[in-house]
Design a protein around this nucleic acid. Sequence first.
DNA 1: ATGTGCATGTAACTGGTTACATGATTCG
DNA 2: CGAATCATGTAACCAGTTACATGCACAT
Lengths: 186, 186
Amino acid sequence: MMASSSASIRYYILGLLAQQPMSGYDIKRFLKNLSWLIGSPSFGSLYPALRSLLGDGLVNVDAIPRNERQSRKIYTITETGHEVLREWVEQPIDPKASLKAFVMRLLLASNFSHTGLVSHLHQRRSQVASHKAAIQQIITTMDNGATPEQYLALDYGLSIATAEMAWLDKALSQLAQETPFAKTAD
Amino acid sequence: MMASSSASIRYYILGLLAQQPMSGYDIKRFLKNLSWLIGSPSFGSLYPALRSLLGDGLVNVDAIPRNERQSRKIYTITETGHEVLREWVEQPIDPKASLKAFVMRLLLASNFSHTGLVSHLHQRRSQVASHKAAIQQIITTMDNGATPEQYLALDYGLSIATAEMAWLDKALSQLAQETPFAKTAD
DNA sequence: ATGTGCATGTAACTGGTTACATGATTCG
DNA sequence: CGAATCATGTAACCAGTTACATGCACAT
């Protein structure tokens, strides 16, 4: 089975296929747009991953032939695939998770329940808060012997963390206002 | 020789040793503090990397014995090591470079010249600007068929990018005021 | 004709991780 | 007395990239 907390390309794929069936090439194209946030996998990992998902029964494929040309292969997520994805998406996020991992989940969040999404954001918020605190502590502790360049890097980290916090707070308060009744289907 | 643009652990090490000699364990400890920003390598990659740097003559080692116990190995960067590091640090940053790669360089920026640092920040600034533009374009283009969750992720990316831009502008204007010789830290 | 985009794939390699092995020291 | 931390290292494994191979369609 799939190692439950590894945020591999397999989940990328599953998440995208959950939104609509597409080919390997489509997946690549889609991900390229967001590559600076979450990175876009190479074909060398994409196609083998599709194969293995197929082998595990998490996706199905429809080869739609295009006379003469090699047929396009449209992949569709299966029920099992949905389950596996939901399972992954709902498990607690690992404390060492990067910004990238967080965005990736956010992107695949169509599979979240409303409350699942809220708790995801809360988890992130508390982690960012502790990062922030850690940096601030380092900054105050490091009066002794640190270069101004090190300070620069830490200050940078601090301002990113602050921005993240602000965004999370905004998003959470918006979600709190939205009454969850529309999304109660589950 | 070392592949010039790969931001491997080797440069982490070189950069830290450029600031002061330390052992493998010290390096690990130091990096752990900033792990959420740049990640901290495992011993399984750290020690072999030190070996290979030693083999390449980029670092020297002083085994300081501690009677009975296995001796601590304090690594020092060599002149060649300095050169290699400077070379890496001064080459243009790869457009697909992540936030992580950027912070890493910033952290190792004690090896930058003043102008080098400024140009580094400028490069980053223009890249972030294009990221921002790309996201905004996607958001406007995607009115058609996108889930609100996808919008959430994009909005998140946008606010991070905005914060980065703001920080970069601030840092750049500060550096512009500082005359290169007066390093008067605030 | 020539290159760029569509479309799929394989093989070799690499840069890491995880788990293991060892052993002394310090802290609760 | 046992657990955590200091401190070094190896070996097996793995997820990914790069480079390669193929071939059609469309625009310059």
